[in-house]
Amino acid sequence: MCLALWLWPVSGADAQATLKKASLCPQWIPQAQFAGYMVALEKGFYREAGLDLNLMVGGPEKPPFVALETGEATFCIDWLSSGIEKRASGLPIVNLAQISQRSALILVAKKKSGIERSHDLNGKSVGLWPGQFYLQPKVFFDKYGLKVNIIPNYSSVSLFLKGGVDAMSAMWYNEYHTILNSGLSSDDLTLFFFSRLGLNFPEDGIYCMEETFREDSKLCQAFVRASLRGWLYAFRNQDEAVDVVMKHAKDAHTGTNRAHQRWMLARMKDLIIPEGDTGTLGKLDPADYALVGNILKNFRLIDREPKYVDFYRGPK
């Protein structure tokens, strides 16, 4: 009830009069990973919140924090680990909301390669994405003392499908389903969820420059509220939400299909409103924050964790 009230636009009439321009840079190409924002835009939730939002087309060529830094984007979506790293490296960004509560990063392994349990990975070749995707697998391998042959993997699942690697890192909501819909069955695969291996790195969060927040915190809060409202609407009306996503995907020629986006949206729900969690919507758990910061420090990717209160300006 409190949440619902909080999500509702504060001063509709006032906002209608003067819409403030803002732009959002998602971390990746248009897909259901960003359904909440697309739906909020489509259903006019941002307008109701007083925002004239420009939803940018993300992708590998558009790193979100660069877009923030250059001022091209008012808000961006990126991973918590990236956010902490950026803040620690001196870019004054703040987290306005932690949307995804669970890590969707997984290792997908072929049972045919004899991988059924963690220690089966020993001596196997594993395709890993570079950058922040590398962290959790590395910690996991170290923790279990696994000697794996790490092979860099890039944008496609072809290397895995063609037998170049025995396992690969994948997003549960994306590549895993791509693999399923390339002819492998879930029975052929073993999944390792980092979120269940003590490595739950919350992923997508909403960020803006600290300056933006200082100057117009109401705008920031209105944006977050409208976005969360978009997510809730999308989860309640999944068919409609998938329609909206497909429209954005088609405009960007991403070459996807409804089945895939439907799966992704359903998984996003599992990540944003995990079963059993209540009252965590949009919030950054200090424990999660500490875990991620700690590991970043151990890997010497940061010297010192930013203070939680400096970093997080979202709903309490």
């Binding site: 819909n181 390339s182 996807t256 299909n257 089945a259």
Partner: peptide, 12 residues
């Protein structure tokens, strides 16, 4: 073309 697969249609 390049969007749907036999499997995605089967799923949908």
């Amino acid at each position: 073309i390049m969007s749907e697969s036999m499997f995605s249609i089967a799923e949908e």
